[in-house]
Design a protein around this nucleic acid. Structure first.
Lengths: 205, 205
DNA sequence: TTGGCAAACGAACGCTCGTTCAGTTAACCT
DNA sequence: AGGTTAACTGAACGAGCGTTCGTTTGCCAA
């Protein structure tokens, strides 16, 4: 056997990315072998090298792709910057929660596997991560300037906020107690309170 | 060479634990080999098996030890349960931040390496983790009952709170912009606002 | 001074790892 | 129909893996 019947490069490329994503999310990058990924795709290990120059690039492409997706999606979704900061913050919160629930695997990898990137690759992913953090910080600075929220250490608060929101990906499971929409509602309440916004909300137990 | 001059079992045991902790925190459990750990200790790989039955146990002992330490330290520190919930919450926040700053390595491992535990070992560590989460949930339930904070989804809020607080271990570095005490102050403010406590605080930029 | 034990060596075991490559087959193009 | 290329195999490479074990050395008690 050599080439498979009905084989198609693009299909395999996607299958490789999916398998890698799934396995790395489950077991961790270092614990997953190229042979495991190949088996999941239904192919020999050597064939993977038609789609990636090496294992490291597989991880890097996954993480960079995720971060770029995240930033792009936000930038085409976000309301104009002249809108009230608290509205923007609420929109960001809903966006972040929904995005992180929908792509839990990639998000998980992006947070767990930074250590396994080569220094150059780490630098680039880190750059993207910082610009995502900057999105939140900008909103918070606007909020403080408007007097819509408490006087904040905007850098620290943005980090705390993102950590809080991203935490959802560590415990969310499909079919759990709460639907994504209900989860987002509760996180919006917490977010607005966290930044000291005047709001009468509260989703009881 | 065989036995080293001045060698002592207890010293080596601690050196092994330290080296493992440092290397695993930096590179991840699966990416660290027994030979690397041995080199760091200044010993041959085989000698490690005088101190651990296998690599998996090395990780498990590290994580279980950390979680037990964390729970024990809290339980001997915590104020009585009949004190006001918001006071208890503030104390918990300060405790958590300081503990996580002081033992960043172990904390990091405890969050990152759950996947690399065998199923039985995972179950035990998970049990300890849940009982730590329960500490927060109990405080929040008391707070709601007292009317000291907003009506909360106490389970979700406790998870969000812990995620927010634990996030400090991903960015804190010695000699950074803020001293641990200042960081704790700011997290206390955020925590109290997050749960909807009536408080006039706010540490500005 | 010698026997026994604790601590560590160093070589080896069988595997698996990431990666390469010559060969083979299916699909596509003319 | 025939030639080219894209897709993949299967075997091999050297290196490193976790772990075991017989041996060696330092230390202490008798």
């Amino acid at each position: 056997m050599a080439r498979k019947s009905g084989s198609n490069g693009e299909k395999t490329r996607i299958a490789v990315e999916d398998a890698a994503s799934r396995l790395i999310a489950r077991h961790g990058f270092a614990a997953v072998s190229m042979r495991q990924i190949a088996r999941e795709v239904g192919v020999q290990a050597g064939a993977l090298y038609l789609y990636t120059p090496d294992k490291q690039s597989l991880l890097y492409d996954l993480m960079r792709g995720h971060m770029e997706d995240l930033l792009d999606t936000w930038q085409t979704t976000a309301m104009p910057q002249d809108r009230p900061a608290l509205d923007r913050l609420e929109q960001f919160t809903r966006f972040h929660i929904h995005y992180h629930i929908a792509r839990a695997e990639k998000v998980f990898i992006a947070y767990m596997e930074l250590r396994n990137l080569s220094p150059e690759n780490f630098a680039e992913v880190e750059r993207l991560r910082r610009s995502y953090e900057q999105v939140v910080q900008d909103i918070l600075e606007a909020g403080v300037a408007e007097g819509a929220c408490a006087p904040l250490d905007t850098r620290l608060t943005s980090l705390a906020l993102i950590a809080m929101l991203t935490g959802v990906s560590t415990w969310y499971r499909d079919g759990g107690r709460l639907e994504p929409e209900a989860i987002a509602d509760r996180y919006v309440d917490m977010t607005l309170r966290l930044v000291g916004a005047r709001v009468a909300a509260g989703s009881g137990t």
